[in-house]
Design a protein around this nucleic acid. Structure first.
Length: 428
RNA sequence: GGAGAGGUGGCAGAGUGGUUGAAUGCGCCGGUCUCGAAAACCGGUAUGGGCGCAAGUCCAUCGGGGGUUCGAAUCCCCCUCUCUCCGCCA
């Protein structure tokens, strides 16, 4: 959500910012509604003041035993005048909110211009493409021949884009999640949270999934929504709160299932576990003071990268272009892991984490503020979120990068304690 | 799911139609006192919004929404959350 005062003060800059998002100038329409609304509010408040004063007089007169009929008629006239104005004000307020809620965040000046992901900029590349002395298989072939990955069973139970994992791979999911949580909580200062996976519309609006992106979500009959990421419940934990500056930064992490309708992705990534309706993820969320959010984005990204380094996986970090940066973000870094089994064994990089600084955009929607000790005024916090990491895709990366010629999988050292000392996944 | 009781300022807790944005206590901030501190005393201490350069001023808000009334924290309706008892249940 945007600050209406910023649009009033600097409509030109606002329109330029929207232009970077590929949008037509918005400020004229917004300010027209805003101006009419404020005029109405002013006259409405004058009428309210008059009504309040007159009502007080009526009380005095009645207490003194006088006749208040004439003055009561006066109030009746004021009230009838107010009714129409109140309705108009309500409509204008809703219109204004609808406009402000549907526009994307203003992009950071450092975000490269571009139409789509092909214009993203590579910031760094860590590690080399994994070398094999044999043709690399993809995770589907590996997982199925191990007897631990069953897409037919997933389809039988739930339809397309679901999978059933068994024995070693089922356990690997748990191992990856524990490893990530232990690292983020034990070493990077995140607090572990176990949030609900089903949330209210209001909560989805706070982080920006609603009202625009309902088609990407699963909706329950009692009007709740399945979370597409733990960013939603974690970030909304501070909704409608006024925090002490002393309590910031807040660093939260959660391992949750994530549900995505993938409405716009029909036909894309249909093979394997890359794109599922349900997957799990360890999410990182930071709530910080405004002047800290740029640094916090770097820190958060390095926390996510650290997991990949310890797993011995190669990756690159991309800064998303203006055309690829999500609705709520001001700046986003994607971490892409090397998957040697993709593209017919030629290998390719695939997104495994996305870290975004949302600035005050979500905070304004959520009314999440903080106050410095002794200060009277409040400010909106800045919010950040990032994957640390997506478990399903990390599993794919482990399978494809640690595969051996016989189709067994070497388990990365850091995961072995979480696998009961197991060193290899193989057909039993 | 059934029955009942409640949601008031950072917290505790008054308040059942007329200067109540809201007593009182605690907490917090500032001050007096003190070598310093404690205690005591004095003052301050919600959020959002309109107008205004500002000082300021006005409006709204006592879980949320609607209604009754000249006037509602106080009355009525709906929703929601919490607590107690019963039932059911992982």
């Amino acid at each position: 959500m945007h600050d209406i005062r910023f649009i009033r003060d600097d409509a030109k800059s606002f329109d330029e910012a929207m232009a970077r998002r590929g949008l037509e100038p918005q400020s004229d329409a917004i300010l027209a509604v805003d101006q009419e609304r404020r005029q109405i509010i002013t006259t409405l408040q004058e009428l309210q003041q008059k009504r309040n004063e007159t009502s007080r007089q009526i009380g005095d007169i009645k207490k003194a035993g006088g006749d208040a009929d004439a003055i009561m008629a006066e109030v009746a006239a004021i009230k009838s005048e107010m009714t129409a104005l109140e309705e108009r004000e309500k409509t204008l307020g809703e219109d204004l909110d609808a406009m402000l809620l549907s526009l994307p965040n203003i992009l950071d000046a450092g975000v490269p211009d571009g139409a789509d992901e092909s214009d993203n900029v590579e910031l760094r590349k860590i590690g080399e493409a994994t070398a094999f002395s044999f043709p690399a298989q993809d995770h589907v072939a590996l997982g199925e021949s191990l007897g631990m990955m069953d897409f037919a069973a997933g389809a039988k139970l739930s339809g397309a884009r679901f999978v059933v994992l068994k024995s070693g791979l089922a356990r690997l999911e748990r191992a990856l999640a524990s490893f990530m949580l232990d690292t983020h909580c034990g070493e990077f200062g995140y607090q572990e949270i176990l949030p609900p996976a089903l949330v209210k519309s209001e909560t989805m609006q706070g982080t920006g999934q609603l009202p625009k992106f309902a088609e990407d979500l699963f909706h329950t009959e009692d009007d709740r929504w399945l979370i597409p990421t733990a960013e939603v419940p974690l970030t909304n934990l501070v909704a409608n709160e006024i925090l002490d500056a002393d309590d910031l930064p807040l660093r939260l992490t959660a391992y949750t299932p994530c549900f995505r309708a993938e409405a716009g992705a029909a036909g894309r990534d249909t093979r394997g576990m890359i794109r599922q309706h349900q997957f799990s993820k360890v999410e990182l969320v930071s709530i910080v003071e405004p002047d800290q959010s740029d640094d916090e984005l770097e820190r958060m990204t390095s926390c996510a990268e650290n997991i990949l380094k310890r797993l011995g996986l190669s990756y690159r970090v991309m800064m998303l272009s203006t055309g690829d940066t999500g609705f709520s973000a001001r700046r986003t870094y994607d971490i892409e892991v090397w998957l040697p089994g993709q593209d017919d064994g030629k290998g390719m990089y695939r997104e495994i984490s996305s870290c975004s600084n949302c600035g005050p955009f979500q905070a304004r929607r959520m009314k999440a503020r903080f106050r410095n000790k002794g200060d009277k005024d409040t400010q909106f916090v800045h919010t950040l979120n990032g994957s640390g990491l997506a478990i399903g895709r990390t599993m794919i990366a482990v399978l494809e990068n640690y595969q051996q010629e016989d189709g067994s999988i070497h388990i990365p050292d850091v995961l072995q304690p979480y696998m009961g000392g197991m060193t290899t996944l193989k057909l039993s």
